[in-house]
């Protein structure tokens, strides 16, 4: 079966630095996949390649089998991919409702777009912020507004880069529930640091290390894998092997 999104030998170099190195990843319809890894593992660069912000140095990105490598971000979004960036990327001068309406307006008329935007805000539990100017909201609220912006157009695939960064424990738990709920109808890729959050949404996990895929498995096995512990703690695999049991 053709994967919804796949990369083949995806590589991104900045001069002599290889940030993403020959990555082959495949995400199926309605799959929930987490990309984890320590700082500098190449997750964000990989995310930017997927979303068209970087043009990969080598390799291909396939959407339902079609080569979309090098497409502009707007063209990638139009395929039906909803994208949430690490730092909330919002229209600060607009109200939450205006911003989310714009997300839907490309496909629907003004009235229907507004209705869907309001529904998305209420789904995220921030309906009361509809008329608030986005630039004046707290960080956690901004994260939720951005999530509403991403889910409102009902994309086929949702890519979330650190969706819980800066959120309170309560907001994080709510977001985990929301992501599981979104996953009923959409494929979701989550790029995250927060291991508790990863446990909460328990899914297929791909671990990045030094630009390459280190491990790819179900959550339970990946989180128990000593190699994953090592890269998070900063120990090279050979050092771990040298330690007597």
């Amino acid at each position: 079966m053709t994967a919804l999104l796949a990369t083949e030998g995806l590589t991104m170099r900045f001069g002599g630095v290889v940030a993403v190195d020959d990555v082959n990843l495949s995400v199926a319809e309605r799959e929930l996949r987490c990309l984890i890894g320590p700082n500098g593992a190449g997750k964000s660069t990989f995310f930017r390649c997927l979303t068209g912000q970087y043009r990969p140095t080598a390799g291909r990105i396939l959407w339902r089998g079609r080569d979309i490598t090098g497409l502009e971000p707007h063209a990638i979004a139009r395929l039906g991919i909803g994208i949430k960036t690490q730092v909330p990327s919002l229209f600060d001068g607009l109200t939450a409702l205006e911003g989310v309406t714009l997300a839907v307006r490309r496909k629907h008329g003004e009235r229907e777009a507004k209705r869907r935007a309001m529904a998305a805000l209420e789904r995220l539990g921030i309906g009361e912020l509809a008329e608030a100017q986005v630039g004046l909201l707290a960080h956690g609220q901004r994260q939720l507004v951005e999530l509403a912006t991403v889910v409102a157009p009902e994309p086929d695939l949702i890519i979330l880069d650190e969706p819980t960064a800066g959120m309170s424990a309560e907001e994080t738990a709510g977001t985990a529930t929301l992501i599981r709920e979104m996953n009923r109808d959409h494929a979701v890729i989550v790029v995250e640091h927060d291991m508790q959050f990863i446990r909460a949404i328990a899914s297929g996990i791909t671990v990045f290390h030094q630009g390459r895929i280190l491990v790819e498995d179900c959550a339970e096995r990946v989180l128990a894998d000593p190699r994953v512990h090592d890269v998070y703690l900063g120990r090279p695999p050979e050092a771990r092997m040298a330690v007597p049991a």
Binding site: H74, A77, R78, I83, L90, L94, T149
Partner: peptide, 11 residues
């Protein structure tokens, strides 16, 4: 207001 966000919405 935000070029990147507008692009990520398909504009």
């Amino acid at each position: 207001e935000n070029e990147l966000r507008a692009a990520l919405l398909g504009y």
